[in-house]
Design a binder for these strands. Structure first.
Lengths: 341, 341
DNA sequence: TTTACCATTGCATAGGTATGCAGAATTATT
DNA sequence: AATAATTCTGCATACCTATGCAATGGTAAA
């Protein structure tokens, strides 16, 4: 339909009566060009619809101004769309384009990272996905900085920023104990994720310290599995009186299971606490007590880290744990005055 | 920390004792290379960690194998993360990388499209964002095909694929009428979106045909505004008995407003119907009657259209409307036998 | 054995921009 | 007005890979 002729800087140069170099310089802010010349070039460029070719530029500057974002669980947990939104916005503000990969369970990072490296991304941000140390090494060899969001890799020199999941788990446990709940349970997310493992660890620590036996089910970070798990925990001889779910979505599943499925009351019969504090948690239907992840700060820290390591490759990686905040709403019993020491 | 030396095809060539051309050909499936040579090259490449530079390749082939996805509402409506997930997966399956832009209300497409064109994307897919005809023209001039998902631009020659929003609105209206509801209302999304306008149009058509007066509020496609709007509609002398919300998230807001806010019953006092059928709609807490958008088919159609127009630029654009499906659940009164003709 | 033919390979160049260096044009200095 | 100091500009080249064309080698046909 249309002439597929790409307009190059040379044509602009010819029309403006200058050299190609000058056109190039006109489009680079710091380059030395007479103000008048630049204006002429820019105006002609606009008229004929010229735009610099980022590929050619990247080839020579060795900077693509692209970062790779690898993410998963975008549909199963509303927390991650929010993360993606914030990440993407922040990268844009810093002049970085985003190459996105949404990973599914049937895919491995090992197939995705090479594609990112092939496109010369300046850095890679990985969230909700576990990075193998082999791949971490591959990126290191390639000289591309990697930052993990809410995951970590022990051996590597990737940066990472996590919510303090262990502390979060402890806080929840402590709240249950202060509320004199005696039969707690934990519904795990996906078994091999550090987030679920750490939240469980903190929670169980507190329970062990207080000599309280704790049940455990697996909800795979999704609503339906958590719904079923909650039924298991309650529909038994010695039902639990409190459930800590490793994320909010599962907490909703548990809530619905307890209320609609079992026809019990929350928090009178069962206290339920989640993790994330996604926007829905504050909706009247759920009114969920939960641990708020400091998304903004985690995003800011991650992006700033990655960008600074792109600018200064010799910088060492950063690793930081950021505290969450307990948000008490109506789905959990409140500690009575008496029981508070 | 690391030597930032990029490994090029020339080094592989030297080590393998072949020319750079041969290395290049070894990495291109259809190129004529002796099987043995290719194996040697590949193995050496793997050993020293060589990967072709996609930028350089794109420069010469004039194909970036990247498409741009422009999206918004990623956090406010769970429908769009799902769309993004499916789109991204489908593009990946077709060997296209995705450059992502998440647009916010304070941003204009006019700033974003040039960035995509600068990076030589082979095509652009826009969803949840309105494209100005000026920008449509700009892409056309550049020779880059554009496909719209759930939006359309009257004048342009962009492709678009929409759910049949008018028909969806009519179906909802008809259901209310069959259920003998007499005081219906519509809660609009964002005023200037074609989706909200069309759903309203279909709904109002039916109401007008039946001579039923219909109230109207605006919910801006978000939970809180719809919550407030629903209160308005019910907390008044002559309260409504049925509400059609332009998407599911607003329907949840309306539900919570009616039940928690006003302490009324759904569907006994008020019937509520949404649009989208996001996964949450089937949760027991909501159990929402809604119009399911045929996401899969819309995604498949959009991606296939864009890819085919990338391969064959002279192909004319496609425009198609795809029917949704009414999913009846518990939030709406069911037509009695008697009232069915 | 000679000729024809096919499968591989290398050479040379193109794709569009950025940048060091040197020359040209302009301004400041005396 | 002449010279020195700046500011601009153009030339030539590099970035890395893909590909048309010609040359090479080898094999099959005669």
């Amino acid at each position: 339909m249309k002439k597929k002729v790409k307009i190059t800087s040379i044509e602009v140069a010819n029309l403006a009566g200058v050299s190609q170099s000058t056109v190039s310089r006109a489009f680079t802010t710091e380059s030395p060009v007479a103000k008048k010349t630049r204006e002429k070039v820019i105006s002609i460029a606009k008229r004929i619809g010229y735009q610099p070719n980022a590929m050619a530029r990247s080839l020579i500057t060795r900077k693509s101004n692209m970062v790779g974002i690898v993410i998963s669980n975008v549909t199963s947990n509303p927390f991650y769309p929010e993360v993606l939104d914030l990440l993407s916005r922040k990268f844009q503000e810093n002049g970085q384009k985003v190459m996105l990969f949404v990973v599914h369970r049937d895919q491995s990072l090992d197939d995705i990272l090479p594609q990112l490296l092939e496109y010369q991304v300046d850095g890679i941000l990985i969230t909700a996905v576990t990075l193998s140390s082999a791949m971490a090494f591959e990126c290191e060899r390639w000289g591309t900085p990697v930052t993990l969001f809410n995951r970590y890799v022990p051996g590597s020199n990737a940066s990472w920023f996590c919510c303090d999941n262990i502390a979060g788990g402890r806080t929840v446990g402590q709240l249950f104990i202060d509320s004199e709940l005696k039969r707690p349970a934990y519904i795990a997310g996906s078994e091999n994720t550090s987030t679920s493992i750490d939240r469980e660890k903190g929670f169980m620590e507190i329970m062990n310290e207080n000599g309280i036996k704790t049940l455990r089910e697996v909800g795979n970070y999704n609503y339906n599995d958590a719904y079923a798990a909650a039924i298991q925990l309650v529909d038994r001889p010695n039902p639990v009186d409190s459930i800590f779910c490793s994320n909010d979505i599962m907490a909703f599943g548990a809530l619905d299971a307890i209320r609609s499925g079992m026809d019990l009351k929350v928090p009178e019969d069962v206290s339920i606490i989640g993790f994330d504090d996604i926007p829905m948690a504050s909706w009247p239907s759920f009114n969920l007590t939960t641990v708020r992840q400091p998304v903004r700060r985690m995003v800011d820290a991650s992006v700033e880290d990655l960008i600074s390591r792109i600018k200064t490759p010799e910088k060492p990686p950063n690793q930081k744990v950021i505290m969450g905040e307990m948000i008490v709403r109506g789905s959990s019993r409140i500690p009575s005055e008496v029981s508070m020491s």
